[in-house]
């Protein structure tokens, strides 16, 4: 090798291939024994660690499988319970649970009808349409139970003001309602031309179409007491055995028919007992108050024509009411203002 400083790579190469003297045999054997013992120790430790780790993983997997089995079984059992319930989207809470018999029933959620058979859940705002042959039983969270006759259409929802106030809008058909004592809460059945408010009772509401745009609501009470409103006014309080039927005329006709000169007949429905057909205004004070308050409100709002019509309804329907004298005076004032206004407008023309 020449000029080693100028050829470092060659020196490295020469170093790497330089001869290595063999160590003495005793020294090599002693070294071999020591190194092998240490290597075996490390190997055994590694195998032991790997075995323990594999055992740990095996236990973890076994425990996971054991924990998953009940969940899988429960899921399979839940999925195998007959027809899977038609579930509405979860954005709104469940308003009622429905059990139907017969085919053809469906729930309309967000304008999308979903056929149901058997058990189903209805959310607030959903519409239930029963099939032509099968009634539906509806259980509400308050405990109220409704049996909807075949070919009925109703919507279950809560009042905007009170989530405990359950409202069933019956478009057509018949419902038998069994409402437990609700306490402070209320239950209302709304029909196209009437509203039935109850606090613990059993009653039946039937809605039928008379002519296009004209409806007729029949209410019959089995237990308790219900308040029937018609055309925005509390018309009747029905006791057990009482029935109520709305007029075939539309509410709009009744409300606009009043005039100062010719008082319109009362737009309330016909109240009769179920047995002897007598009028049974058992407790009309609430209705009288409602009529009086509505008339006063119309008068203060400047709607003297409506005020006169409402006063006329009160006086014609309940001539012996303690509010009759006050109502007459207020009606006269409203009628004078109305006549004065007409005269002023006629002079102006």
């Amino acid at each position: 090798m020449s000029a080693p400083d100028s050829r470092p790579i060659e020196i490295v190469r020469a170093l790497a291939v330089s001869v290595v003297p063999v160590p003495p045999a005793e020294q090599a054997n002693a070294q071999r024994d020591a190194v092998l013992a240490r290597m075996r120790e490390l190997q055994a430790h590694a195998v032991r660690t790997r075995t323990n780790r594999a055992g740990l993983w095996r236990r973890v997997v076994l425990w996971s499988v054991a924990a998953a089995i009940p969940l899988v079984v429960a899921g399979a059992w839940y999925g195998s319970r007959g027809t899977a319930p038609a579930r509405a989207p979860a954005e709104t809470p469940i308003a009622a649970r429905v059990d139907t018999t017969g085919a053809g029933a469906q729930i309309v959620h967000a304008a999308a009808p979903v056929a149901i058979d058997g058990h189903a859940e209805v959310r607030s705002g959903d519409t239930l349409v029963t099939g032509p042959n099968g009634p539906a039983s509806i259980a509400l969270p308050s405990g109220a139970r409704i049996v909807a006759a075949p070919s009925s259409t109703l919507t279950v929802h809560w009042s905007d003001e009170d989530r405990h106030h359950e409202v069933v809008s019956l478009s057509i058909g018949t419902v038998d309602v069994d409402v437990p004592k609700l306490g402070a809460a209320a239950f209302t059945v709304v029909t196209p031309d009437a509203q039935v408010v109850v606090h613990g009772t059993r009653f039946t509401v039937r809605v039928a179409r008379q002519d296009p745009g004209t409806w007729k609501t029949d209410v019959s009470v089995t237990e308790g007491r219900v308040l029937v409103s018609h055309a925005g006014l509390d018309d009747a309080v029905l006791d057990p055995g009482g029935t109520w039927t709305s007029r075939p005329e539309s509410p709009a006709v009744a409300q606009t028919s009043g005039s100062p000169a010719a008082p319109a007949p009362p737009a309330s429905g016909v109240v009769a007992s179920g047995a002897d057909k007598r009028r049974v205004p058992v407790d009309t004070l609430a209705v009288e108050n409602s009529l009086y308050e509505a008339a006063i409100a119309a008068s203060r709002a400047g709607d003297d024509a409506r005020a006169v019509a409402l006063f006329d309804r009160l006086l014609a329907g309940y001539p012996d009411s303690p509010l009759a004298n006050v109502a007459r005076r207020e009606r006269d004032k409203a009628a004078r203002r109305l006549a004065q206004r007409k005269n002023d407008s006629g002079a102006g023309e």
Binding site: L15, A16, S18, P21, Q31, A34, M39, L42, Q43
Partner: peptide
């Protein structure tokens, strides 16, 4: 041997250390 140039007293330890690293 080639890198250290000789076998010194700690040569056996270095052999063992190298094998430990390999294992």
């Amino acid at each position: 041997y080639r890198i250290l140039g000789r076998r010194e007293q700690d040569h056996a330890d270095l052999v063992q250390s190298s094998f430990e690293q390999i294992v």
